[in-house]
Simulated assay, not measured.
Amino acid sequence: MTKKSIANLLPPREEAARYLENAKQILSEKAGKKDDLYADVKYVKMAAGTAYSAALLILDEYLKQKEGLKFIKPKSIEDYTSRVRKYDKKLLRLLVDVYDELHIIGYYHGTRSVNTIQLGLENVRQMLTYI
């Protein structure tokens, strides 16, 4: 079996944890840090996108567990937030924070702030406890 086919066999929690670990690895090996700022925004954006993907995997699994056969994959952040709101307010707050820290500030704007990205990664780690 190839690495790709092995990854597809992982349970959702382990797959999301793998994405999160990949994001941390990208930051530590490629982004470079100096004075609490990342040196290479390209790799910060890549890591932020990978970590945000982990959050979406977590949310998909969480909603599958809650909705069962009625589950349909959300198509927008608004869909995710409205559906998560029905079940857990703390997870909703984590989702909103991760969306801002990793997707908007990290991925789209390409922040160099170590603190912002690390906070986003920690919030994704907390989200893992929900599945």
Rank of each mutant, 00 (worst) to 15 (best):
M1L: 14
M1D: 14
T2N: 15
K3E: 12
K3M: 10
K4I: 09
I6A: 15
N8D: 13
L9R: 08
L10A: 02
P12I: 00
P12W: 01
E14M: 05
E14Y: 06
A16G: 05
A17Y: 03
R18F: 11
Y19D: 05
Y19G: 01
L20Q: 05
E21N: 13
E21H: 10
N22S: 11
N22R: 12
N22I: 11
A23F: 06
I26R: 04
S28K: 15
E29M: 09
K30P: 07
K33E: 12
D35G: 12
D36K: 14
D36I: 07
L37Y: 15
Y38A: 05
Y38V: 05
A39W: 12
V41Y: 05
K42N: 12
K42A: 12
K42Q: 11
V44F: 08
V44P: 03
K45M: 05
M46C: 11
A47S: 15
A47C: 06
A48Y: 02
G49L: 04
T50P: 05
T50R: 10
T50K: 11
A51I: 11
A51P: 09
A51H: 06
Y52K: 05
Y52M: 03
L56F: 01
L57Y: 10
L57F: 13
I58R: 02
I58E: 02
D60C: 02
D60W: 00
Y62V: 00
L63D: 01
L63I: 00
L63A: 01
Q65C: 09
Q65D: 08
E67P: 05
G68H: 00
G68N: 00
G68Q: 00
G68C: 02
L69F: 10
K70Y: 06
K73N: 07
P74D: 02
K75R: 06
S76W: 04
I77F: 13
I77L: 10
I77D: 12
I77Y: 09
D79E: 09
V84L: 01
V84N: 02
R85A: 12
K86P: 04
K86E: 10
Y87H: 05
D88E: 04
D88A: 03
L91N: 01
L91Q: 02
R93Y: 11
R93E: 13
R93M: 12
V96A: 13
D97W: 09
D97Q: 12
D97M: 13
Y99Q: 10
E101N: 13
L102Q: 05
I105H: 08
Y107S: 11
Y107L: 15
Y108N: 13
Y108G: 06
H109Y: 15
H109S: 14
G110L: 09
G110C: 07
T111M: 10
T111E: 10
R112G: 14
V114A: 07
V114N: 09
N115K: 14
N115D: 14
N115A: 15
Q118D: 14
E122Y: 08
E122L: 07
V124W: 04
V124D: 04
R125W: 03
Q126R: 12
Q126T: 08
M127H: 00
L128Y: 03
T129A: 11
T129C: 04
